[in-house]
Design a protein around this nucleic acid. Structure first.
Lengths: 116, 116
DNA sequence: CTTGAATGATACGGAAGCGAAACGAATTGC
DNA sequence: GCAATTCGTTTCGCTTCCGTATCATTCAAG
C-alpha cells in the first residue's frame, strides 16, 4: 500500500526530520552513515564491507570509516567471519536498534503532523 | 491532512532517501545545510543569519559556513540588508528552487513505493 | 560625538571526511 | 607448494566541518 504525498508535504517532512536531527543532541550521522546503518537494520544479514560499498556506490574505505565512527557510538559491531576470515560481518546492537527505532518514531510523528 | 505511517515504512522511507542522496551525484549536503536550505525555501522571508542560528540551535559560524558552501553551489544568495547594513538577507535562487523541488519529488516517489 | 550593543565574518586548533593507492592476511587455483 | 586474487584496513594529502574566541562594521542611545 503506497503513501501519497504532495510536494509541500514532502519538503516539510524532510525539513522537520533534518531539523530534529540537528537540534537533538543525538550523534549526527552523515547521509552515508545513515544509509549504512538503516541498510544493516532493514535487510537480512550477513552484511559485509564490500557489499555495502557496492550498495551505496562508494569506495571501501568509506564503509570502514563509517563503521569506525558508528562502532564507537555502539550503533553497530564488527565481527570476523569464522568461515572466511577475510570477511567482516557487520552486526546490529541493542543501542543501534534503539536509535533506529527512535528515528522511525521521529519520521512517523513528523508525518502525522504534516500540513494539509 | 496527516499521513499515517508504520515503523517499517518510516525507516524504509528514510533509508531510501538517504541512499538516493548518497548515490546521486548531486551535492551531498549535511543535515545542517539541508535544514537551512529547506527552511529558507519553506518559510517567508526575510531570513537572517542570527535567526537561522537560533532556529537550528547552532552557533553563527555554522550558518556562515553553510552559506559559504551552499552559495558556491548557487543554492542560496547573500545580500546585505539596505535598511540595516549589519544584517545579511539570505535569498532563494533558481537552481536552489530546482534542487528543493527535486528533493520533494524524491521523497514523494519513495513514499509511493513503500512496502505494505 | 562617543560609547555600547548587535551583527556577521574570520582566525584558530582540532576532528573527521574524502578518493586513490598501497598493504597484510586469507583464500583459491594451478 | 606457490602465485594470483580477494578482502578489509591503513596511509597519504587534501578538504570540510566543528566550537570558541575575536574582529570590523554598523547602528542606537546618551
Amino acid at each position: 500500500m503506497s503513501i501519497e504525498m504532495k510536494p509541500l508535504q514532502a519538503i516539510t517532512l524532510l525539513r522537520d526530520i533534518a531539523l530534529s536531527e540537528v537540534r537533538d543532541d543525538a550523534p549526527d550521522l552523515t547521509f552515508r552513515q545513515m544509509s549504512i546503518l538503516l541498510t544493516v537494520y532493514l535487510e537480512a544479514p550477513p552484511h559485509m564491507i564490500r557489499g555495502l560499498a557496492a550498495r551505496l556506490g562508494v569506495t571501501k574505505p568509506v564503509i570502514t570509516r563509517a563503521l569506525d565512527t558508528m562502532g564507537a557510538l555502539k550503533l553497530v559491531e564488527r565481527h570476523r567471519d569464522p568461515a572466511d576470515k577475510r570477511n567482516v560481518l557487520i552486526k546490529r546492537t541493542v543501542s543501534g536498534a534503539l536509535y533506529v527505532e527512535r528515528l522511525g518514531d521521529l519520521v512517523i510523528s513528523k508525518a502525522r503532523g504534516l500540513p494539509r
